[in-house]
Design a protein around this nucleic acid. Structure first.
Lengths: 349, 349
DNA sequence: CGCGCTCATGTAATCGAAATCATCGATAAC
DNA sequence: GTTATCGATGATTTCGATTACATGAGCGCG
């Protein structure tokens, strides 16, 4: 027996035909045992299952997929998988997908358009039944697809809601949450407040900024705001917070649009020899798992990350199952979690 | 024109036959344009590409996969995607995979065997060409597969090396690293050292524990060790560190087998009204991105997480390309990063 | 001038399962 | 008692690409 053949025979998986012959039925019956067992006699079903176990048969996925035009996969693209916020959302996605019999194809776009395009092509090639994108950009080819097929296109967004993109989405009320943060700070007596935003291209930043401005205007404090533009990373938090602190008449409170930037801000405050919250109050955003273990424990806006993941999968499944005729933009509840990084400003300055 | 038909016609993607007819060639030629362009005349290639663009053709993935028996996908299972250590490794995996034309199927097993089995079945169903598992368990069906096919089985492990599992792997020298940590602490003058391990079922814990014990014995301090078994989570860090601190003759230094548990230990130390590092020194493991931004900045063992991801993909690609006849267990370099969470013990007790 | 060779391309089998349609025995309806 | 009906199963086509093999034109060389 030639070696190659031996190797091949070891590697070769039993096919539906093998099972059919072993069980003395047709391939159609074997297929039915899996996809519509109620159509087949109990005795036959048992006979088939015995053959299946005997041969260790597993249906070949590609063949099934070719015939049904379904992959049972969801492609999830995310700007940065190593960001705990996103990895938590993905956890929710993965869980909901698995429960519905889908598996997750992960795409880390690293904020790069080229990678986004790559994954868009994958989706067009039908390597996944649906696409969930957690970033804010939708590649052109997909935008065209959405324009052509309308709300039944199996593409949904998580976290970033932009009205222009005609896709369903799940997210929190970013504007409202940001306004609450400002109210909290104003309530403590702060007036000189610094804000470290994310990239302004992202609706998440835009919405939160709108909330900040609205709250400031209501208080007549808009002119006392200080802005700095970060990119959600720890390092940018250090950088932008330092810049704010070094201005004349520095802020007594800093609001960062992510917990990671807030971690950076803690470091910046420390480097300047200041104390948080005594000299400078600090608020983050997201409530990642680590926020409550920082020193000081971080006041932040809690987002229901896993729930966003679940919801976004639900929206997608609705589209795939041909329920859901109109767009749905689901707003999930957030919560301002006050911990020990916020306090009244040092003294009436 | 019935609506259903209209919808279908919109959704229908061009097939290779459509392209062939549009370009006036055979399907074989179209296929060659993609998979072996050097075999086709430049003029023909252009003609075909025009048709491709005109029709917006993308090769159907399932059909290709059925014929070639390859999926160009790598299944990666991970015990907990929201753990920054793993998400960083995955980042490396994703990057290396994408560069090699593979995409990543993500499986978050949540430390549950049932989910591991589910993903094992996926792999057997040939939904991926290879499997990378970052946990320490390999489901039985896959162990059998490894036993049958030997080192050419496209399964590799990341982080957890267990000699019994006959699969290639990439990891650091956990034993050596743990010994270095102990040397560092002994060098500072500590003798009463507490250790918070991970689950003992994991080789990672076993190896590190071996390093701890070896170093302690060399110093003749084995009997002064205090052990507590955690599960790598923040919460278990709080719990186990608290337990250690509450013992009579509490440790002056605690070594946690993960940075997350060290974060928990910081909290425990704080709750007991102690100061780190003045009263208790603390060492973590992994050097996740946040370690250097904690207060105090965490002394820890830096693991090359993305590099582990790259390496593990390389090992897998070697197997898939039929290079690699023997098992490879790659040890990557680690580094003890001394920051401000370690200091000499309070006073000669 | 014809043989063989190369190069470009076409023809058709193939991958493995799903789904449509056909079959056939048994049962119910009239 | 004949005919719809139904339930279980088999035969066959189909999904869309890849690829081994076939074909045929063009060319060099003796």
């Amino acid at each position: 027996m030639p070696r190659a053949w031996l190797a091949a025979s070891v590697a070769r998986m039993a096919t539906i035909l093998d099972v059919a012959q072993d069980a003395g039925v047709s391939t159609a019956t074997v297929s039915r045992v899996f996809s519509a067992p109620e159509l087949v006699l109990e005795a036959t079903r048992k006979k088939v299952m015995e053959a299946v176990n005997r041969l260790g048969y597993e249906p070949n996925f590609a063949a099934k997929s070719l015939r049904t035009l379904r992959t049972e996969k969801i492609l999830v693209t995310v700007p940065d998988i190593s960001n705990p916020f996103f990895s938590q959302v993905i956890r929710g996605v993965e869980e909901a997908a698995l429960a519905a019999g889908y598996s997750v194809l992960l795409g880390d776009t690293r904020h790069e358009e080229a990678r986004e395009e790559q994954y868009a092509a994958m989706f067009r090639r039908k390597e996944a039944d649906g696409l969930i994108f957690l970033g804010h950009r939708l590649p052109d080819v997909l935008a065209e697809m959405v324009a052509a097929k309308g709300p039944r296109t199996p593409i949904v967004n998580g976290c970033e809601f932009r009205p222009g993109l005609a896709v369903s989405s799940a997210h929190i009320d970013n504007e409202g949450a940001a306004a609450e943060v400002m109210e909290h700070l104003y309530g403590l007596g702060h007036t000189r407040i610094g804000v470290v935003t994310g990239p302004l291209a992202s609706p998440i930043s835009g919405d939160r900024l709108a909330g900040v401005l609205a709250a400031a205007q209501r208080r007549g404090q808009a002119s006392a705001l200080r802005m700095a533009i970060g990119d959600f990373s720890i390092e940018s938090g250090v950088r932008q917070a330092t810049e704010l602190l070094d201005q004349p008449g520095p802020p007594t409170a800093i609001f960062c649009f992510s917990d990671e930037m807030a971690m950076g801000a803690i470091e910046a405050i420390r480097q300047r020899g200041l104390d948080c919250p005594r000299d400078v109050s600090l608020v983050g955003f997201d409530d990642i798992r680590f926020a409550q273990y920082l020193s000081p424990q971080l006041t932040t806006v809690s987002q229901p990350m896993e729930q966003i993941g679940h919801e976004v999968v639900r929206l997608l499944l609705d589209i795939l199952a041909d329920r859901a005729s109109a767009l749905q933009n689901v707003t999930l509840p957030h919560r301002l979690v006050v911990r020990s990084s916020t306090a009244p400003p040092p003294d009436p300055s």
